[in-house]
Write a protein that binds this DNA or RNA. Structure first.
Lengths: 338, 338
DNA sequence: TTGAAAGCGGTACCAG
DNA sequence: CTGGTACCGCTTTCAA
């Protein structure tokens, strides 16, 4: 690979001059500029990004840590981040953390050693201290870390409330909640949203909240038991779509008709919702937008070191499909329920 | 951030000595080693990966280019690559190409400039020349590029044959194929596999091969027309699961019973197959294994520059689910078809 | 408008 | 066993 020195020699100028033309900064005569460009062409010269990074202490790469790209929520998010950062000339390093803070810290260390310019984090096992000690811009996405850290999230709690209200509207008498993992902010918030609505209902009891760890299978098992133990449950709000799908499966296997005997609604709005049977009602998050906004904000932070808004909270949207529709509403009457 | 010089000063030794202890190579006295380690501890020193890369001309990072992480086939692949490379100390840069050769070439250039140590490619728009000119180890995954580049794929053609045979076994009389995009190797191969089996059948005609571009919606539209135009079609082999799902939707909307009137089978084995209704039969690829093998091979190539096997072709496995079962077989009798 | 040279933070060769 | 030092390839003063 040709170096800047080769180009300088070929063009009969100094490396300083070559540097000036490739960065188009500083004065350089048209003539010499032409010569240099020809030499660059001739040698197919591409500046060495590593050498440049070493000097500038920045690498035009950003780190992205997510729990697991295999979870259908994250590909869209990652894609959004890639799209906008790539557009601005950045490149992304991807890390799956499996929610493990060791893995996350490992990645953080690597990012530091590689002069990554900024980091996007979907996690909650990291502390503000760990993040502050990086001395690099960080934005939290999907899961807030601390009010000190720029954040892009959806309205988990409010969305959860809306989901439960929808179930109520549709005539449900006893609504259970399959929650995500403890201490995962989004799961906690959604659970709170559920409780906000139901905690004062006469039928409510702790027993109605079960844990599905954001996973199809865990939710499947938990829902199976729930359905057997509590035949009176006629509505389930799952903390994410995957768990809702698990519940759907449990219901089918136990011969519980959805939505007639049991209405189910999820959260996230992943593509799978449209391919299940019955199709799954859900609270749709603007996943791509979350990622894009986070990426844009991060780049602002990197390049300007200042930003007008530090906290974005996107509304989620109720999308009614067949898993929660078509049941005779008790006290309400919706035209589209027929 | 502390540098190696800071550590040297703190420990009262030379940078050379510090370098020796952090790389544990060359002789170094136990005593001095202790001193150095203490200094490292004290200053919380982490070697600068960029400086190291500049000198060693390698970066402990590998580039991964895939068409689109949003396509459910790729997250698993990417995860496998990340898992095994990370295990060996590498880090991955992810690029979505959208099948565009310009984007791919862009990434290749960036990889070169960043001293990426090796590349894993799921693409077919790149030429051997472009790859050879990189002068870096490259392995092709999912889609072979050229016999000259190390490759890990599944048995697309043979798998397709098995899928079609299964449909035949199950009693189908007229089988159509929704193929993937032209010039995408995997799609071409699967189409060939289909033709291998059906081209001599009396009922076969070109009209039975339609294009769904590996996408749910395109397949949905194509299948809708097909079902209307050719009511005699009673079996569809889709080139991937996404398209099979599109076909499923078309069938449902047109009141065509699956599998009684129309059997459908896909290809890939993505998770969604288990959440559709009816659940989707498919040819399961060992996706994770493909990625893991590719990653392992790449690392061998990077570290040893030699490898015993250059070409892996994994068998795919027929997984029968309800989208192609339960119909009365015509000439055959399978116990599990009841 | 251009060039010389001092780094950026490591590595590894060569002396001692 | 340890230290001095010349690079790796590029950027950026500082002078000319």
């Amino acid at each position: 690979m040709a170096t800047i020195r080769d180009v300088a020699k070929e063009a009969g100028v100094s490396v300083a001059t070559v540097s000036r033309v490739i960065n188009s900064n500083g004065y350089v005569n048209e003539e010499t500029k032409k010569k240099v460009e020809k030499a660059i062409q001739l040698l197919n010269y591409k500046p060495n990004a590593v050498a440049r990074s070493l000097f500038k202490k920045q690498s035009m790469t950003i780190g992205l840590i997510i729990p697991d790209i295999t979870n259908p929520f994250f590909p869209q998010l990652a894609r959004a981040v890639e799209d906008v950062t790539n557009e601005k000339g950045y490149t992304i390093i991807l890390g799956n953390s499996d929610e493990s803070s060791e893995k996350e810290q490992e990645y953080l260390d690597i990012f530091e050693q590689k002069y990554v310019d900024g980091i996007i984090l979907a996690t909650n096992t990291l502390t503000v201290e760990q993040i502050a000690s990086l001395g690099k811009p960080v934005v939290a996405v999907d899961r807030p870390i601390d009010s000190g850290v720029p954040t892009v999230v959806a309205e988990h709690r409010r969305g959860a409330q809306a989901a439960v209200r929808h179930l109520l509207d549709t005539g449900c008498q006893t609504i259970a909640h399959i929650r995500g993992p403890e201490h995962v902010v989004s799961a906690d918030e959604r659970c709170k949203g559920y409780l906000d609505i139901v905690k004062d209902k006469p039928w409510f009891s702790d027993q109605l909240v079960i844990n599905g760890h954001y996973a199809i299978n865990d939710a499947y098992k938990a829902a199976s038991e729930l359905i057997k133990d509590r035949p009176d449950v006629d509505g389930i709000f799952a903390g994410n779509d995957l768990m809702a799908i698990g519940a759907l499966k449990a219901a089918r296997e136990l011969g519980k008709k959805v939505p007639e005997e049991l209405a189910i609604i999820g959260f996230d709005g992943i593509d799978m919702c449209e391919t299940t049977f019955p199709e799954l009602s859900t609270m749709v998050q603007p996943i791509y937008e979350l990622g894009a906004t986070a990426a844009n904000m991060l780049i602002e932070l990197i390049e300007n070191r200042r930003v007008n808004q530090q906290y974005y909270e996107y509304p989620v949207q109720l999308k009614v499909r067949n898993s929660s529709r078509g049941r005779p509403p008790k006290d309400v009457n919706h035209a589209d329920n027929i």
